[in-house]
Write a protein that binds this DNA or RNA. Structure first.
Lengths: 340, 340
DNA sequence: GCGAGCCGTGTAACCGTTTACACGGGATCA
DNA sequence: TGATCCCGTGTAAACGGTTACACGGCTCGC
């Protein structure tokens, strides 16, 4: 009996129609408008579908409906809790809209981002989510030419070329600095990730410098990893003036800094204070519990999902959205020189 | 001039062809076989493409080529470093093959997995990656009927219904237990994640019980989070016989356990030993550095990508692959009662 | 008993590509 | 000069669905 098992070709609507002695239209209706065809015809069709192991072809369906139901997300990496949490929120909410998420990592490289954006469009993404507001001109050309909805996350900017859904990176950094300054710290080491291609980092650093608070700020750039934080802490401690506080622009870096300080016998916050940025779930449990600036990344994922979903469905771009940040004060910060 | 800007409809090949006074075939060739059409014709076509902002329709292309270049992955969550790292490895390697990754989270629920699997197939996934070897019958029906390549990860099983790429979960748990037992521990608390629907966890626990080493094993189930680990540690310590070691089936749980022990004033490993499972990058930097069993998740992502890519390209299913696990001994384990 | 209306089903056009095949014209060769 | 070949290009048939429209048969009302 041909067509039941083991044949090369995947069965299509026509095969099902033939096997159940109806037209392709009827089969299509059984699948898409179940109430339209009932009784024995319906039974026959369903039986044929089952026997043939028929499954509708996504591309053919997409070409007719004009929709792929695919949203693409471009993130620097998945190997960083901040983006993974964001994507978790994004994917869950997109699923509520019946949209699927295709993920591409860029390694924070604008050219790679452009290449991957093209790949996302090639698989039919109806909308794109990107991180930050620094992009290759090729990326801008590509997306504007194709008139594809793009939402930028991680940084709020009221009139960027794409609608943004993010927080105020300047304010988030200032929150940490003001906290430390308020405690009395004047010699502060800033530990940050790579500045190259990362607008959030650059914005935060410039915000800190522009505050012009009395005292000195010294920057140390580090690879974003616990080890990177360790090494940066070592370098900062080797300077002529030892800082009384470390302001880290990532919780991962702060975790490394805490570790290195502990290893070298410093008491945090008695000898040195440390702040993070992001407020990862684990930051409450490092020792000592990390003072950090909470960035609502999971919520950002949810909001980004809603924004892009409405956009691709209604054609109406979303309004930019600023998400609140807040300082979460824990045990890793205190006044400098508490003994004097 | 109609068709240049602001028209509703997205331009298609025909529009480009009309505008450059060539046939659709020529336009298609400019895009797909650049060397076939050169000179002024080529220029005209490229100009028209540019002016119209033409971008090829993914679905139409897919229907002809018979390929979508999409691979779907089903993972319990993205909000856990172990899966995020896996996906990072997977996505990077898939990109080398020109394949895109669509991600769906299941919350460790087989029914949700089935629903999401259907969604992945509806967007045209050519192959699927799933976690573990516990799946709803609906999932099995769906995937076998549609004859779609499926690779199961996280657990090696020589002749599962799908090819597996993973490690030996029994052996990984035994490694930890043998280590503790070799140090002299007899009263051991096992801290594990939810057993329900999680075959890896169940396999590990049964492996530990089946070893039948002298001494007692007490299980505590916890939600997989640092806080979950804290609470489980509290419960284990409240028992009549206080364990001399905690064997945690996840580094995240172990981190919580370490935190709770420290909070309660226990000295690790002098008073109590702790082991983890996974060996996350951060585990080297918790205090004290965590003894753990290294699971090669990033490598698993790479291998899974290669396996599914070859499968969808050649039609040949991959051989199951067992990845090595190893005990990484650090400072969180030592002999019990070192004083006596 | 006959026309209207409805319901279930079929026919065929269409979606936007790719590509086998056909075709026409210029260069090459005898 | 005419046959041959090649190259660039066009025509049209797929691909696998959805759906507007047509159509035939049934029920119903007058």
């Amino acid at each position: 009996m041909p067509g039941i098992r083991g044949d090369r070709k995947r069965p299509n609507l026509r095969d099902v129609a033939r096997r159940s002695n109806v037209s392709v239209a009827t089969v299509s209706r059984v699948l898409n408008a179940p109430s339209m065809v009932l009784g024995p015809t319906r039974e026959r069709v369903l039986a044929a579908i089952d026997e043939l192991g028929y499954f509708p072809n996504a591309a053919a369906r997409a070409i007719n409906l004009g929709r792929t139901r695919i949203i693409g997300a471009l993130v620097p990496t998945l190997d960083n809790a901040i983006f993974a949490r964001f994507l978790d929120g994004l994917e869950n909410r997109l699923a509520d809209y019946g949209l699927s998420l295709v993920v591409a990592t860029t390694g924070e490289d604008p050219d790679a981002e452009t290449v991957k954006a093209r790949a996302l469009m090639n698989v039919g993404a109806e909308g794109l989510i990107v991180s930050g507001i620094t992009h290759a001109s090729g990326f801008l050309d590509l997306t504007t030419n194709a008139r594809i909805p793009v939402v930028a996350i991680s940084h709020f900017h009221a009139d960027y070329v794409f609608p943004t859904i993010g927080y105020d990176n300047r304010a988030s950094a200032e929150l940490a600095l003001r906290h430390l300054h308020g405690l009395g710290h004047r010699d502060i080491a800033i530990i940050h990730g790579p500045k190259r291609h990362n607008d959030r980092t650059r914005l935060r650093i410039s915000a800190l410098e522009n505050l012009r608070l009395p005292g000195s700020l010294e920057c140390q750039e580090a690879e974003i990893s616990i080890e990177g934080g360790c090494r940066a802490a070592g370098r900062a401690l080797a300077r002529a003036v030892r800082p009384t506080a470390f302001l880290c622009l990532s919780d991962v870096l702060a975790t490394g800094v805490l570790y290195e300080l502990q290893r070298r016998g410093f008491d945090v916050p008695r000898d040195i204070s440390v702040t993070g940025m992001e407020d990862l779930p684990s930051s409450e449990f490092v020792f000592p519990a990390l003072t950090s600036v909470r960035l609502p990344v999971a919520d950002m994922g949810t909001r980004a999902a809603e924004a892009i979903a409405n956009w691709v469905e209604s054609g109406q771009p979303p309004d930019p959205l600023k998400l609140p940040v807040e300082l979460v004060s824990r045990s890793s910060t205190g006044p400098p020189f508490p003994d004097r």
